[in-house]
Design a protein around this nucleic acid. Structure first.
Lengths: 223, 223, 223, 223
DNA sequence: GATGAATGAGGGTTCATTCAT
DNA sequence: TATGAATGAACCCTCATTCAT
């Protein structure tokens, strides 16, 4: 991630407090470490929750010393919040793009399902969502951020899509426009189910979400 | 003496606090206190999560001394699990009853929505469900219990209801029979939304769930 | 999360504090601290017994923070056991050497008495023995260790010595070969007496043990 | 123990603060309970030591409620000290009598051994001695009491016996007069051994003590 | 920068002691 | 007198955070 080459500085110069990640071999190394810590943090926070996760274990998993974490993050909470923030943003654009396609709703919806399954449910972002659900109530800033940067944007895109569909007569009712949450509900439920009951009763997410689309739009296949 | 198995301390089976539950003035007082502790615990666990909740605060909220908790619960975890178990069981029967009514699906579904809104969403049981979602992954026993005693029973009742409906031609498709989770999805989403985004964008649960029913069964009103 | 086995917390094998013991400036400092803690622990455990000793006081006496103890010892019990083990082992070799000398029994015995008085009775090892006597019944592992690493080796050395003496006709009877404990008995009694009645009736250990040897071997002086 | 019959009082009379255990059915019951508590306390203190013994367990073992203990003993320490005091006194007289017999030392010594084995080693008094050894250093009053009421009296009796023996030429030396502790040493060692190493290497006390007498007085049998 | 030893506040749990019944 | 529920101080242990190297 961004490991471009810059002029290596004369080795005696006082190192310049890193004003803003000027790209250099140093900056590259720095970004790598940051990523390693975030990855380890995701692992630990997912497994234990915020309060019970131990920075000791994060450091171990990242292959660094405990103190080093504090060179990259102010404290445990900053690490946690940065983690959440950094993971979700990228997927939004992809979803927005998928939802903006000028196709029949059903087709768009199926693509969005694909994106969700591939980019969220099938990756560690699923765990990020779980963390937001679990810890969000204790971290209002986080919920705020998530609402502002992720949810509201997706909801807006969904609303636009559905408005188009309504005009074209592709929608049975306006219920889902008033409550676009309903479109994402099976995704949320799948993530929760996966965390709690997978071993009692495994769930086929894709099938679940397709079934949901069938209910919303009728049985017709699209694409 | 802690966890290592070396220091021998004759294995005095911890005497089982209260074998008898003969109703007496004592038993009444006891049950009251137990309830007070559970109520306080719900408050604390909901607010902080299991790990971060402090028994000191539970005691304060219950108006008792810290040590008293241990007269009623073996330890923090037992308190937590007892809390979950004791709160959820009662509602199951009510839901089962509602779902067993021999009426059109839509009518039954609306009644179930009512039960949910009144008995779960409108009460602290909503917080219990949040706790199960948040802490369940770290307490497999809890998830097991919840699946066995609550979910599987409700799902069975839902399936029975839907099978009846299918025979009568009241169902557009069998999708929801294959994934009865879809029926509960809006409830779950509402609870989560309530915890995270209520202040950005309040949600009318009843309307949300009605809208969902409209999507599933068509716009027709029932009852 | 304590003792119950329910809350799952991935079994992160506690990383083994210090694998390497390569002598460095760090290792030296480390060993010093360890010794300081052990010395403080001896003081506290001797004064209060295992159960009543407070790690807070150990830390104070060692001039460190409470938490630091746990960087060197797993828990209170490990500290206790390590203390016992580390203090007693060194003296065994010295005693074995003294007992293996090819001299008349009486002479050897007198040297052993000297070793005991100088290396045990006159040092804090006396307190270690008191601790073994007091706490051993509650710490079978400790009694086992002590029997295996200390007592049985001394007894074997004593038996060898006495067997030689018996052949040479230096022994009045074989009684003491059957019960080599009798040779050490005055040492034990002296330690106990010292702890209990020193202020009522001080005891001259050396004289006591010499008198005992007189009884066992006759009045003859040796050396 | 002292269950004599007195006039039972009219049941309305204010109970008279029990000035001094006036013998009555009440007093008898009281003494019984006291004994039960002491017996239970001996069990617990022996098994766990003073600090680790729990009054809860004492109460359970005595078949009474925890609070009741405080009707008979001021606090945990008083219970402990009363326990030690009450158990040892009786045996002193017996030993004094045995030691005062006008027989050859060896014979007297053998009788004393018998008394010890029967009245101490074979009974729970052995545990009392263990407790004095273990806890005495932390309870100076106890050591004082024990020295005054038990040890000094036995030592005096032993000295008198040995003085007689010396006059009659039954003694090889005066060593044992100077250190009468030597006579009891095997008893002490046996008690300690029993607590620590019995399962590694069981000990025949009687044989041990006889062997010791052989060493002190020569092989001759007596009686 | 990186390290990891050290810190010490904090929280779960125990248990001697009290007191209302 | 007897009870046993209730108390709360005390203590072990953890872990986020700091800082000398």
């Amino acid at each position: 991630m961004g490991k471009s080459a810059t002029a290596s500085r004369g080795s005696k110069a006082r190192r310049p407090r890193r004003a803003m990640a000027a790209e250099g071999p140093r900056a590259g190394r720095r970004a790598e470490r940051r990523q390693a810590i975030l990855a380890a943090a995701l692992q630990e926070f997912s497994a234990c929750g915020f309060a019970a996760a131990r920075l000791d274990d994060v450091a171990d998993a990242a292959g660094i010393a405990k103190g080093t974490i504090y060179l990259y993050f102010r404290d445990k909470e900053a690490l946690f919040q940065d983690l959440i923030r950094s993971e979700m943003s990228p997927v939004v654009a992809t979803l927005e793009t998928a939802l903006a396609l000028d196709l029949p709703v059903r087709a768009v919806a199926e693509r969005a399902v694909e994106v969700f399954v591939r980019e969220v449910y099938g990756t560690s972002r699923k765990d990020i969502i779980r963390l937001i659900i679990s810890e969000g109530p204790r971290f209002p800033q986080l919920a705020d951020f998530y609402y502002r940067e992720v949810l509201s944007r997706i909801i807006a895109a969904v609303r636009a899509l559905l408005a188009r569909a309504l005009e074209r007569g592709e929608l049975r009712s306006d219920a889902i426009i008033r409550f676009p949450q309903l479109l994402g509900a099976p995704g949320i439920v799948a993530i929760i189910w996966n965390g709690l009951f997978e071993r009692h009763d495994p769930l086929d997410v894709r099938a679940l979400m397709r079934a949901h689309l069938d209910l919303l739009f009728g049985e017709g296949r699209a694409k």
